[in-house]
């Protein structure tokens, strides 16, 4: 069966150079106007099957959020292709995107900024549905209450405004809004990272219960390794706009192949274990996306980098059992680690 979402070689660049006057520079006696291009997503490919949860992990600036927003066309992609349910939506304009909105929805990170403070909860949760309805909807009120009930909110909440809710409740409202059109795919961009630990567990449980009930898929973006391990079927690890490793959850956590994945797993604090010694840690910080390193994006911090890493960019190649890695160390399909 064709995958629900297929993303091929997706690229997203932003020109942050501003107007011509901001760009003017005098260099060596000559006037130039260099452009500043942020290479946010650099040729990422992945697929999501029906009912599957793909977790995307990476640190800030790795392009995972941009990737999510490009997939749902909040940004126009610079290159590559996005296909939902076999339909290529890469070039879809506003009108051709309308039927797609019913199939793909999003849950946002910030429970405070993602709800319009001047809208009542019943109007917030029904907005996508009403905007995409073919004709008049006679049972708006009942539908709104039914949606709220699905996320554990009651009739008494429907007429309130967002500021009367806690962070966790707001996130429930955001989930109800995404559910309203009955989507096949929900893109969740750090949906629990702004919440307290005890509330995180509630929201993660709710999201998994809803998935089991409705059978949709998640593209789940997070920086939190324990969350991604809990919720995902498959995991993609991103670094500097590149997908450096993908694979089934257990393969990634038990047999990480990319040095970055290994470092990320080593750095994550684990309850009741001592601080990992400095030798395990990768040095330095993420380079600027304005000026990508040649060759492998991770080579500037990689403890195992060698000559080839500086000249040739490694491609994401399958090693075994749906596990792929973009690293010259694993070029020959040697999965005997």
């Amino acid at each position: 069966m064709a995958p629900l979402l297929a993303v091929r070689d997706l690229r997203q660049r932003f020109d942050v150079s501003g107007s011509i006057f901001d760009r003017l520079r005098i260099r060596n006696g000559r006037i130039t106007a260099p452009r500043r291009i942020v290479h946010a997503v650099n040729g990422v490919s992945f697929e999501i099957a029906r009912g599957e949860v793909l977790g995307l992990v990476g640190e800030s600036g790795c392009g995972k959020s941009t990737l999510a927003k490009t997939v749902i066309k909040l940004h126009e992609p610079t290159g590559g292709a996005i296909a939902l349910d076999g339909e290529d939506i890469t070039q879809h304009d506003f009108h051709r995107m309308r039927p797609i909105r019913k199939k793909m929805q999003m849950i946002f990170q910030d429970p405070y900024a993602s709800l319009n403070p001047r809208q009542r909860v019943r109007d917030i949760v029904m907005e996508p549905y009403l905007e995409n309805a073919a004709g008049p909807v006679p049972d708006v009120a009942e539908r709104a209450l039914a949606l709220l009930a699905k996320v554990g909110l009651g009739r008494e909440h429907a007429d309130r405004y967002p500021h009367q809710f806690s962070g966790g409740q707001r996130q429930r409202i955001g989930i109800a809004r995404a559910l309203s059109v009955g989507p096949d795919l929900i893109i969740a961009d750090e949906p629990v990272s702004a919440l307290d630990v005890s509330i995180q567990a509630q929201i993660l449980n709710l999201m998994m219960d809803l998935k089991d009930e409705f059978g949709f898929s998640y593209l789940f973006i997070t920086h939190d390794l324990s969350v991604v391990r809990h919720i995902s079927d498959r995991i993609g690890v991103m670094y500097l706009g590149f997908m450096v490793e993908t694979g089934p959850k257990d393969a990634i956590f038990e047999n990480p192949l990319h040095p970055y994945t290994q470092a990320l797993l080593a750095a994550a604090p684990v309850l009741g274990t001592p601080l990992p010694p400095a030798a395990d840690a990768i040095k330095g910080e993420v380079p600027s996306a304005l000026n990508l390193p040649t060759g492998c994006p991770f080579r500037t911090r990689c403890p195992l980098a060698f000559d080839r890493c500086a000249v040739e960019r490694p491609e994401l190649k399958p090693v075994a059992g749906g596990h792929s890695v973009a690293c010259h160390l694993h070029d020959g399909g040697i999965a005997a680690a």
Partner: peptide, 24 residues
């Protein structure tokens, strides 16, 4: 105990997280 249980533990294969009901 509730706080500790809310953290996803990978060594325990659990379908649901133990959650503290309600909110602060």
């Amino acid at each position: 105990r509730g706080l500790l249980d809310s953290i996803p533990h990978h060594d325990k294969a659990q379908a649901r997280l133990r959650q503290i009901p309600g909110s602060v």
